[in-house]
Amino acid sequence: MSDGTVISYTVFDGAGPAVVILHGLAGSSREFVPTAEALPGRRVILIDQRGHGRSTRVPADTSRAAFVADAARVIEAESSGPVDLVGQSMGAHTAMLVAAAHPHLIRKLVLLEGNEGGGSPEEHADLAQFFHSWQVPFATREQAQESLGGGPLAQAWAADLEARPDGLYPRFDPDVMAQTIRHLATPRWEEWTSVLAPTLVVYADGGMFTEEQKARFVAGGANVQRVDLLGASHDAHLDAFDRWVDSLADFIAEGEVSLLK
């Protein structure tokens, strides 16, 4: 990219329109490999957003504009037409901004556990403190998963740790995560209300948003469907996988035969 950042992404070959997926804060594209594999026949592009996964670990720019530009450039390089853009959490925020800034690139938009942005400085500080609290290096992936609280998200983090001679490390820098989350503090209602692409908003009953926040966000969109996943968390792509994929595949299939096997 123009600031020297290298963006890593994986392409699952198949027919268009392509499905492009953006992970959440402190995650990586690896979390969405099962989702890609559950869309047989479709071209799927999984992006490691800057500061995450196998992309540049400490980018010079952590602004929302930089994340949007990265995604747009990958789409332009890897797709011959508009794509179905999917994002979770921070990735949903990025996806929403891409759809607002580059409407010609987006056929459909899918937002999993996302909204217009916001959050208090205290909430952001707590999240940054959590990432700084990781007792790295971890000796084993099993020890890492236990240390991080167990469960599907901890398992995903543990599976993606980078092996170095002295142990296992996360594929992100805590300070970069703190910088990145601060850029989500400003609500982006103007961008959200400008998105015209057909949009599916997926929420989990155990996610991070109140019903008031969910309803307000959905009502602010121009062309929005909402699906609620029961018994799921903010990381519903991990702990409510089948229902997540059903919702995604049905929405992007345009009434044709389901993409699922």
Rank of each mutant, 00 (worst) to 15 (best):
P137Y: 07
G114E: 06
L184E: 13
T56S: 15
G53E: 08
R171Y: 05
D242Q: 12
S133K: 11
A249S: 15
D166H: 08
G206M: 00
T180G: 06
V19G: 07
A158R: 06
D3A: 02
A144E: 05
D235Y: 12
R64Y: 01
A92T: 05
D173V: 08
Q143W: 01
E256F: 02
G41L: 04
H237L: 05
F12K: 01
S247K: 01
V19Q: 08
L238Y: 03
T35K: 03
S233I: 06
A128W: 02
G27T: 03
G81K: 01
R243T: 09
W189Y: 11
L85Q: 11
V245C: 15
G119Q: 00
A215K: 12
G206P: 02
S247G: 15
T199P: 12
E256I: 01
H52K: 08
I45F: 04
A249T: 07
A185V: 00
F67C: 12
D61S: 12
A60Q: 11
E146M: 10
E31I: 02
H93K: 04
P165Y: 01
L112E: 14
F32R: 07
E190K: 08
V11R: 14
R226H: 14
V86H: 05
D48P: 13
P34D: 06
L248R: 05
R57E: 13
T210A: 00
E191Y: 04
M177Q: 15
A69T: 15
R226C: 04
L127P: 02
V110L: 08
P152I: 01
A15N: 13
Q179K: 14
R43L: 07
Q143P: 08
S133H: 07
L39I: 12
L260K: 15
P170G: 11
A240R: 11
V110W: 04
M90N: 01
D242C: 00
G41K: 04
E256Y: 09
G87M: 07
G4P: 10
W189K: 13
G53M: 02
Q49C: 12
I75C: 11
